[in-house]
Computed example of a mutant assay.
Amino acid sequence: MRVSRTLLAAVLVVVALVLQVSVLARLQLPGAVPDLLLLTVLALALVYGHVGGCLTGFLAGLMADLAPPADHAVGRYALVLCVIGYAAGLTKPENGQHRSATVPMLVVAAGAASSTLLYAGVGALVGDTAARDVGLTNLLVTATVYDLLLAPFTVPLVMGMARRLESDPLSGDGGSGGSAGDTSVSWLGGGTGLRTRAPRRTRYGKAARLGGQRSTLLSRSARNRAGRIKGVKRL
């Protein structure tokens, strides 16, 4: 990723991690805890693609593994978010933007369920049976519900910030950034495609003006020839 992408991802991940540990983890909700860090990774992966999502997920997971009060093996959540970020980035369309909220919400639901299963699976490999003791089904349901309820307030905001940075003329991204920046929250509503029609009207307008100038020149030359012919007849 470029320097601007890396800085933005690092800032968002740090903010999400602080809120996750200091606020969400202390709500004492039944079942799982709303995973703001996961939603941040998913939102950045939907904008940056599979490579950016993979790197962002690994960075976010490693910070979560090292941040207190983490009580699991270092690298466990980094592996989970790395895989989730890569998979979420694969859903990025070729034009770089989602036309509706359907795909992002499905990605959030799948990411919440998959992260819980992967985390429990990796824990089972290293001998951690906490998920089995709490109840894996309960964790799956509550994690998915909590993340879906939190997603409309976080995912559009993160995607909008990432796309606005992509459309910055100083960032050197050229054409792809501009189209993404014009629809920073386009996943909440479809695009109109007016940007592709305006150049055609401009070309047609230029063609019409050129045609008018040519017809004027032709009519003037025709009148000049007619005047010369009339002069010859008078002589």
Rank of each mutant, 00 (worst) to 15 (best):
G111M: 07
G111Q: 14
A112K: 10
S114D: 00
L118I: 13
L118P: 08
Y119D: 14
Y119W: 09
G121S: 05
G123E: 07
G123D: 11
G123I: 11
A124I: 05
A124L: 15
V126F: 14
V126L: 12
G127C: 08
T129N: 12
A130G: 04
A131G: 08
R132K: 02
D133M: 11
V134K: 07
V134D: 04
V134C: 04
L136K: 05
L136T: 07
L136W: 00
L136D: 10
N138Q: 12
L139S: 04
L140E: 11
V145T: 12
V145Y: 01
V145K: 04
V145N: 06
V145W: 09
V145C: 11
D147K: 11
D147N: 15
L148N: 03
L149F: 07
L150S: 11
L150D: 01
A151F: 09
A151P: 02
A151W: 14
P152E: 08
F153L: 15
F153P: 12
T154D: 00
T154H: 15
V155S: 09
P156V: 07
P156F: 07
V158R: 02
M159D: 12
M159F: 04
G160C: 14
M161F: 09
M161R: 05
M161L: 15
R163L: 04
R163D: 03
R163H: 10
L165H: 05
E166M: 10
E166I: 12
S167Y: 01
D168Q: 12
D168H: 14
P169N: 13
S171T: 04
G172M: 05
D173T: 11
G174I: 09
G174N: 08
G175C: 00
G175Y: 03
G175N: 10
G175M: 10
S176L: 14
G177A: 08
G177M: 15
G177N: 04
G177K: 15
G177D: 14
G178P: 01
G178I: 13
G178R: 09
D182S: 14
D182Y: 00
T183K: 03
T183N: 06
V185N: 09
V185F: 13
S186T: 06
S186F: 02
L188C: 12
G189S: 05
G189R: 09
G190L: 04
G191P: 01
G191T: 03
T192Y: 08
T192E: 13
G193N: 07
G193Q: 08
G193C: 03
L194Q: 00
L194R: 06
L194V: 11
R195V: 06
R195A: 13
R197E: 03
R197K: 04
P199M: 03
R200D: 06
R201V: 02
T202S: 10
R203M: 06
R203Q: 15
Y204R: 06
G205E: 09
K206H: 02
A207Y: 00
A207V: 12
A208D: 15
